[in-house]
Amino acid sequence: MRNIRVRDIINAVERLCVEACTTLHGDWWEAVEEAISREESPLGKDILKLLQENARLAASTGEAICQDTGMAVVFVELGQEVHIEGGSLYDAINEGIRRGYVKGYLRKSVVNDPLIRRNTGDNTPAVIHVDIVPGSNLRITVAPKGGGSENCSGLKMLRPADGREGVIRYVLEVVEAAGANPCPPITVGVGLGGNFEMAAILAKKALLRPLGQRHPEAHIAELETEILERINSTGIGPQGLGGRITALDVHIETYPTHITSLPVAVNIQCHATRHAEAFL
């Protein structure tokens, strides 16, 4: 049994909130550089370069990449041999979010109730997903998710007979309906299989995979490539103003499913694939 103090969890989450909202990973820089070389629209190229300039500015000044610093989504991999000392894991994460968003001058975008809609003032609560894994480590990922792109997401329970082509059609339907709203070039997370809620969580997790990395299974990797090509043939383009680069990547995660089911969830991510990780 290994003890991890809640104080260390709070500090880590606080730091990750600011890091995720102000700095993008190397995979993003490579993907956008490649997108610039492939974009045919002159305006599209200019837009991609401005997004790079914005990201550089954010990293150097500590200003948020986007004013929508999101609802914080937190993925935790908790080693089954870890003992959390000094309080509750969930309270610690929310305290970290509170400090990160208040001290980091990040926007508070969470309302207390879907209908009453009073701002909670500190961006809590986070959406927290915990997986129990073997070992004695704690891995925390903070992925702030903006509302503009989240609102463009969708889930459909397809029939098994709809098959591969049905999956492609549904993803394209969601992307077309989203148009310019999610600030393209987007990244598309697809959850395939499981059941209703599992598909949605898989779609969200798919967004954490580095851009440019394919699924380990060949038939899923091929599907990712095919959907990406079809999305980039829609003409939506950077910011929806026309062009070749509508998506930077498509990531699919799968799970076994029921004999009657083919759930497909599509989680749309804006151009800024924000997430930051820590190991304790």
Partner: peptide, 27 residues
């Protein structure tokens, strides 16, 4: 249209900001 997701860049072009109503709404 303004450039979506380029908030750091756009903020530089804002020279003055004051709240004129509904301060209780925060952002």
């Amino acid at each position: 249209l303004a450039l979506g997701g380029a908030g750091a860049l756009l903020a530089q072009r804002i020279k003055k900001a004051e709240i004129v109503a509904y301060e209780e709404l925060g952002p």
